[in-house]
Simulated assay, not measured.
Amino acid sequence: MRIKMVLVALVALMASSLVAAADYYVDITNRTGYTIYYMYVSPGKSKSWEEDVLGSDVLMNGDTQRVNLTGYTNPYFDIRLVDEDDDSYTFWNVDVSTQDIIVTLDHLD
């Protein structure tokens, strides 16, 4: 009976590691012609935006910013950028494990 309990515990431990959190990142390149002041990245299907990942920094036109996303179990994220004129650019359900973002005026909300 004891061996069976150990095996059940071992299987449960292995199964939980398959759902473990992972680290992701996304490179975001600004090609809007404007400076981006805010960058919000939230898990896909989230009902609210997380904190601004740029903080006191800005993303100048032509620059690329790498955003590290740690502790998530899914690579799908919603990304919203806000420029110096308060214009926003929103990308929904981005698979950051396969896709980076190049934001242009074509993406203006």
Rank of each mutant, 00 (worst) to 15 (best):
D106H: 13
R80F: 05
V26N: 06
D83A: 08
V26E: 01
T35H: 04
Q99R: 13
T90G: 08
Y72G: 04
N74E: 10
A15M: 13
M1S: 12
A9E: 00
E51I: 09
Y40D: 01
V82T: 12
T73G: 10
D109C: 08
E50P: 01
W49Y: 14
V96I: 09
R66D: 02
D86E: 09
V26G: 03
T90C: 09
Y89F: 12
V11I: 15
V82C: 05
D63N: 12
M5W: 09
V19Y: 13
D95Q: 07
V82F: 06
K4P: 00
A9S: 12
V94H: 04
D87R: 07
F77K: 00
A12P: 03
D85N: 13
R66K: 11
S88C: 04
T64N: 05
I3L: 10
M1P: 05
T73F: 09
S17V: 00
P43R: 14
R80D: 03
V41N: 01
S16L: 15
D27Q: 11
L69M: 11
N61F: 12
L59C: 02
Q99G: 01
M14Q: 01
D106Y: 15
A22I: 00
M39K: 03
M60D: 04
D85M: 14
I3W: 13
L13I: 09
L59W: 05
G55C: 05
V41E: 00
K45F: 14
D95M: 11
R66H: 06
